[in-house]
Amino acid sequence: DHWEIRVGDITIHLKDVDEEIIRWVEEALRNGDDLEEIKRWVEEVLR
């Protein structure tokens, strides 16, 4: 699977990601969370 999350001008590409993570990231972006923080979290989860 390949996911693209778009929020404003930001697009995040994710592969082999659980839908729950996608929802979490979308929510975090909508809440204005720091992008670097989100990326770190996702990388942590995917490890």
Rank of each mutant, 00 (worst) to 15 (best):
D1G: 09
D1C: 10
H2L: 05
H2K: 06
H2S: 08
W3D: 06
W3R: 09
E4Y: 06
E4S: 01
I5T: 03
I5F: 03
R6V: 13
V7R: 02
V7M: 09
G8Y: 00
D9M: 12
D9W: 00
D9S: 11
I10N: 06
I10Y: 11
T11S: 13
T11W: 02
T11C: 04
I12Y: 03
I12Q: 01
I12S: 02
H13C: 11
L14Q: 02
L14F: 12
L14V: 11
L14Y: 05
L14I: 09
K15R: 14
K15V: 11
D16H: 15
D16C: 03
D16K: 08
D16G: 14
D16L: 14
V17K: 12
V17S: 08
V17I: 07
D18A: 15
D18V: 15
D18S: 15
D18K: 10
D18P: 15
E20P: 09
E20D: 11
I21H: 06
I21L: 14
I21F: 08
I21S: 02
I21C: 09
I21P: 00
I21V: 08
I21G: 02
I22L: 13
R23H: 06
R23F: 06
R23L: 06
W24D: 01
W24Q: 11
W24F: 10
V25F: 07
V25T: 01
V25N: 00
V25Y: 02
V25H: 00
E26Q: 05
E26D: 05
A28T: 07
A28D: 00
A28E: 01
L29T: 03
L29K: 02
L29E: 01
L29W: 06
R30I: 09
R30W: 05
R30F: 07
R30N: 08
N31I: 05
G32R: 09
G32T: 10
D33N: 14
D33R: 15
D33I: 15
D34C: 11
D34K: 12
D34H: 15
D34Q: 14
E36C: 03
E36S: 09
E36G: 06
E36V: 07
E36H: 11
I38H: 01
K39T: 05
K39E: 06
K39Q: 10
K39S: 04
K39G: 05
K39W: 10
K39A: 04
R40Q: 07
W41L: 09
W41G: 05
W41E: 04
W41N: 06
V42I: 14
V42P: 00
V42N: 00
E43Y: 02
E43V: 01
E43T: 02
E44M: 04
E44R: 05
V45D: 02
V45H: 11
V45F: 12
L46G: 02
R47Q: 07
R47C: 12
R47H: 10
R47T: 11
